[in-house]
Design a protein around this nucleic acid. Structure first.
Lengths: 209, 209
DNA sequence: TAGATTGTTAATCGATTAACAATC
DNA sequence: TAGATTGTTAATCGATTAACAATC
């Protein structure tokens, strides 16, 4: 039975489902039961069935789930077929790492432009993505409606850049700066705090010994 | 009352506490109540008191918490004073981004060496961290006991590299590759899956509209 | 048909919130 | 002292797990 509001715990598991189903499909697995999938993902079969039931009925009694069609369903749920587009602000090391190594398209996102202040970078391409001067951000966004702004700028300008992105109509911000932005007025913010992750690791290591 | 086993939900909030307390201290705030801290962090006062009570009694009735001493307590709990050390495997864009932009020391971790296969990088320093050939990993680890291995290598060699790190005695792996490593035999793994984060953002954007 | 496995309802478990005596 | 705020116990809420009728 489809649910109106799905808990964030469930949403956070969806990308993992997607990843595992993609792996299975690549390995040529055609069908899988909730208990087999649970075993390989370290989840209970019950939880998997509960999770999926938030979005619809994708299985068949006595059979299980068709791997490829479930993968497609999860992709749909995650918005991978919505044609989301993104621009990246800041083409320093981290920005460049994303531009060169991260496959936005594999998440259904088209990265269309990068912006930076550094004159030497302007006009060049990185992995086929053109780099524009940051002054042109507003002009670009008005001509090219954009779903996501990726923030890989210094923390000191994160607030200002986020405001300019929001004013330009982006719907979500993927924030890699250490400043904690909070979502307001219909904007979604996803913070990637490296330090939080490292500190959690530090805790678990220290606790283990 | 100190707890033996603290839930992972609480642990994941600790770095946020640390970050907010550091900000407050920097702003010169001397004391803060659970309700004021809660307001600024979007948590309930109750939750903050419950969370902290897992580790000890750090407040004073009628007063609240001393910001600086609570910050220090949280740092201790997180293992920031354990003298953890780290090496990074892979000095490509992402590795370089971490080497140049991420302040390991601010999390109480000393980054001592980087390893790569690329001959042009070997022998150079990045931000004061020497780069060695990957063949020397075992030799280095045996001479320099290391807490954490940071994986910024291609996903295809993640498994092999993780095994070599574990064999070399590291206690935790900070995994930036897209391959999902799982913790076994006393080793702690912290996965940083960019794609999972972007897909969650994609979901929330798609849902909002 | 018999066996397998779903989707869903009910039971359990854990985490968050509320309440309050203790006390600075 | 009176007011404020803690740490903790109890109540509530939500998420996970178990059970099972439905059915492929």
């Amino acid at each position: 039975m489809k649910k109106d509001k799905v808990s964030s715990a469930v949403i956070r598991r969806l990308p993992r489902y997607y990843r595992h189903l993609s792996d299975l499909a690549r390995q040529g697995v055609v069908r899988i039961s909730s208990s087999a999938l649970g075993k390989s993902m370290h989840l209970t079969a019950s939880q998997i069935r509960q999770d999926l039931s938030c979005f619809g009925e994708f299985g068949q009694q006595g059979y299980g789930y068709n791997v490829e069609s479930l993968r497609k369903e999860v992709a749909d749920i995650l918005g991978m077929n919505q044609g989301h587009t993104a621009v990246i602000l800041g083409a320093g090391n981290l920005g460049r790492a994303l531009l060169e190594n991260f496959h936005f398209d594999r998440s259904g996102v088209r990265l269309t432009a990068a912006f930076d202040v550094c004159p030497e970078l302007i006009g060049h391409d990185i992995s086929g993505v053109p780099i524009y001067p940051i002054e042109e951000l507003e002009h670009y966004l008005s001509a090219h409606p954009t779903s996501i702004g990726v923030l890989t700028v210094p923390g000191s300008v994160a607030g200002e850049m986020s405001e300019r992105l929001i004013a330009g109509g982006v719907k979500g911000i993927w924030n890699f700066t250490n400043s904690e932005l909070h979502a307001d007025s219909g904007i979604v913010v996803e913070n990637v705090h490296f330090a939080d992750s490292l500190l959690a690791l530090s805790y678990f290591i220290s606790e283990a010994s």
